[in-house]
Amino acid sequence: MKLVYKNVDREGGGDIGLIPEEPEDMWHAYNLISEGDSVRASTVRKVQTESTTGSSSSSRVRTMLTISVENIDFDTQACMLRLKGRNIEENQYVKMGAYHTLDLELNRKFSLRKPEWDSVALERVDMACDPTQSADVAAIIMQDGLAHVCLITSSMTLVRAKIDVSIPRKRKGFVQQHEKGLAKFYDTVIQAILRHINFDVVKCVLVASPGFVRDQFFDYMIQMAIKTDNKVLLENRSKFMLVHSSSGFKHSLQEILQDTGVISKIADTKAAGEVKVLDAFYTTLQCEPAKAFYGKRHVEKASAAQAIETLLITDSLFRCSNVPLRKEYVQLVDSVREAGGDVKIFSSMHLSGEQLEQLTGVAAILRFPMPELDEDSDESDTEE
Rank of each mutant, 00 (worst) to 15 (best):
S316Q: 08
P115G: 15
P20V: 07
N31E: 07
D200T: 08
V189Y: 00
A98C: 13
V232F: 02
I193W: 01
T63G: 00
K46I: 03
N91R: 01
I308M: 05
E22S: 11
T49E: 15
I16H: 01
K180V: 13
S252W: 00
N71D: 05
F368E: 04
I19C: 02
V149D: 02
F199L: 07
R86F: 06
R86E: 04
A183T: 11
S38P: 03
T76R: 10
R10Y: 10
T157E: 14
K276F: 07
L373H: 01
L122P: 03
S34V: 11
K184A: 15
A339T: 13
H148I: 06
A147Q: 03
M349D: 08
N107Y: 13
Y282R: 04
V201D: 05
R171V: 08
T101Y: 09
E354A: 05
L359Q: 14
Q254H: 10
R62K: 09
S119I: 09
H251Y: 08
R319C: 13
T314G: 10
L332I: 02
D279E: 14
L106I: 08
S347H: 04
Q358S: 09
Q355Y: 12
E90P: 10
K301R: 12
V202A: 15
A267M: 09
H28W: 07
F199I: 05
N7H: 07
R60I: 10
L373G: 01
G97R: 02
E179R: 05
P324K: 01
R169M: 08
D334I: 08
K46G: 12
L158P: 15
R337C: 04
D118G: 03
Q254T: 07
V275R: 06
R319Q: 08
L317P: 09
I222H: 01
I152W: 00
G12F: 01
R367C: 03
